[in-house]
Nucleic acid binder design. Sequence first.
DNA 1: CGCTTATAGTAGCGAGTCGAAACTATTGCA
DNA 2: TGCAATAGTTTCGACTCGCTACTATAAGCG
Lengths: 180, 180
Amino acid sequence: MNTPQHIRALIKRLARLDAAETWESDLNPAQVAALDYLARANRFSRAPSHVAEYLGATRGTTSQTLKALVRKGYVSEHRSETDKRSISYDLTDAGRTLASQRGRLLATIEALPNTHRAELSETLSKILESQLAKTDGRLFGVCKTCTYHRTQNGHAYCALLSLPLLAEETEQICHEQVAA
Amino acid sequence: MNTPQHIRALIKRLARLDAAETWESDLNPAQVAALDYLARANRFSRAPSHVAEYLGATRGTTSQTLKALVRKGYVSEHRSETDKRSISYDLTDAGRTLASQRGRLLATIEALPNTHRAELSETLSKILESQLAKTDGRLFGVCKTCTYHRTQNGHAYCALLSLPLLAEETEQICHEQVAA
DNA sequence: CGCTTATAGTAGCGAGTCGAAACTATTGCA
DNA sequence: TGCAATAGTTTCGACTCGCTACTATAAGCG
C-alpha cells in the first residue's frame, strides 16, 4: 500500500477534508488559502498576482477572492506610491486572529514524532520542487534561505532589491526567493 | 523548515496545484475527485452518500457532481433492485480512460525512491487516521486489509455482508472497511 | 398489520470559485 | 513619443458549496 496512486490519494484526501472543515468559519477554502498565504508572505509578496501564482489560480479569480476578504474585514488594500498599478494586501487584526487559529490538521501534524516530521517535510518539499520545475513555477520559499539574502554586522539585507530587512521578515515567504 | 505549519502548507499547496491542473480537462477538481473515487471503490461503495463521505461533502453537493459526470458521459447510474432508494454509479469506458490518465503529481511521486515512498505513505496514513478519528470518519481502506476479509480454499469472502468476492474486488476501496 | 421514524437521494437557493476574455490604467522601453 | 508589457479588474457562464425542504422507500415496533 505505498503505490504512487495511493500516496496521491492520501495527499488529496487530506487536503480535501481539511478544506471541508473550513466551511465552519465564514470563509471558504479559497479565501482561507489566500488569507493563509498573506499571513506568511513578506511585504513584497502580497499582491494579487503573487497570491494567484502561489495558489495556481488566475489573477481574475484571485482578485475576487481578495475582494471578498476585504469585504469581510480580514484584509486591507494598500496601493503602492512608486508603482501606481500595484496593490498590496495587509491582514487586519481580525485577519491575524483568524489566520492564527489552529485547526485539526495542524494539531495532528504537531502530534507526529520529530523524526517523522523531518522526513515528511523533506519528501514533500522534493515533490513540490519537482512539480514546480515542470510548470516553471516559483518555490515561494522563505527569505533567509535565498541566494540574495545577506547579513551585514547583524542586519539582514536583500541583495536583489538592495533593501535592508527586518529580522522577522527573513522568516517570511518571498515571491522572489531563489534557493541558495 | 519542518514546522507543522510548513508541512500543512506543503500538503495544501501540492493538492491545490494538482487541482488547478484538472481544469485542462473538461472536468473540474470536484468531478475529478469523485471520478477517481468511483474508479477505486468496490460495487458496495459507489453510492452518492459514500462519495460524499469520502470527499467530506454533503449528499446534496455530491448528487450534483455525480449528475454532472453522468451528463458528460463518464459515469452511469444503476438503481438497486433490493433497496429501491439506493443508486450505484459505474464508470463508462470514457470514464475508465479518463481515470487512468497519469498527471504530473503521479509522475513525480513515481520518480521518488522506494524508501521515501514507503515512509511518506506510512506517515500520511497515520495523519489521515488521526484526522478521521477526530471526526468519526471512515478510513475507506482496501477490502483485503479488513477484519471481515476471509479466504476459503482460494476464494475471497466478506464476513460482514456474507458474500463471495472476486479477486480484483479485494483490491478496491470499501466503505465498510475496518482495519484488521 | 399499520404507524412512526430513519435512510437515500434530489431540487432549488444564494454566495462564491473557476478560467477565459475583454477592459483600464500605468510603466517601461526603444 | 509611441507602443508593448504589466497590474489589476470586470463580466460571463458553468459549477461547487452548504443549506433547507422535499420525495420515496425501508425498517422498527407496538
